[in-house]
Amino acid sequence: MLRHEVAGETLYLSAERAMWWPARRTLIAADVHLGKAASFRNAGVPIPHGTTRTDLARLTALVEKLRPTTLLIVGDLVHDRRGLTEETVAQIAAWRMRHGELDWLCVTGNHDRKAGNLPAVWSVAPAGDRWKVGPFVFKHHPEPDAGGYVVAGHLHPAVELRGVGKARMKAACFWFGREVAVLPAFGRFTGTSIVRPASGDGVFVVERDEIVQLATTH
């Protein structure tokens, strides 16, 4: 994990695409899109099983390692209503049972809104559109907020890297701008979109179990 200071707070960024805020013992992730594969299967598109299971296992690993008291999702915890099959709901409920001590909060993302109320058995506390803690405002859409430094998701950010000659590579990233930070999408079965950070922004690229900070000053 890489240490990163922002708004006077110390954060740690994990290659697993989540962020650890030790001062508040809070684990933060964005765009999990639980049940997305199930939603595809429901529509007749044969996406294999296993993505949701993997995502839950990755959350488990982080929770066991860091022992957070709060798990905060900054939007798009679920993909859509069709993906909330009996099986998916049960799978997540079982996970929740094992981590009953956690406060599980979710800022409402555009996908969450369309999917309707989250299953009660998950006991996820809805955090509304905006959740203010300390110097931070957690929301789904990465827009500046008068209330503080924004931590958001939604974009599934990635940057394009260029190397020697014409080598090119795309990598998902954490992107810390002047007023807004965007977290990478946590879910395995999610895509990315290319963003263009500005000079001086904090950009951390991740791939499997590696995380690297890019320089953005000159």
Binding site: L161, R162, G163, V164, A167, M169, R196, V203, E207, L214
Partner: peptide, 11 residues
């Protein structure tokens, strides 16, 4: 590999 690469920034 990433170490030797560069990122595209906002113009």
């Amino acid at each position: 590999r990433v170490e030797r690469m560069v990122v595209q920034l906002e113009r």
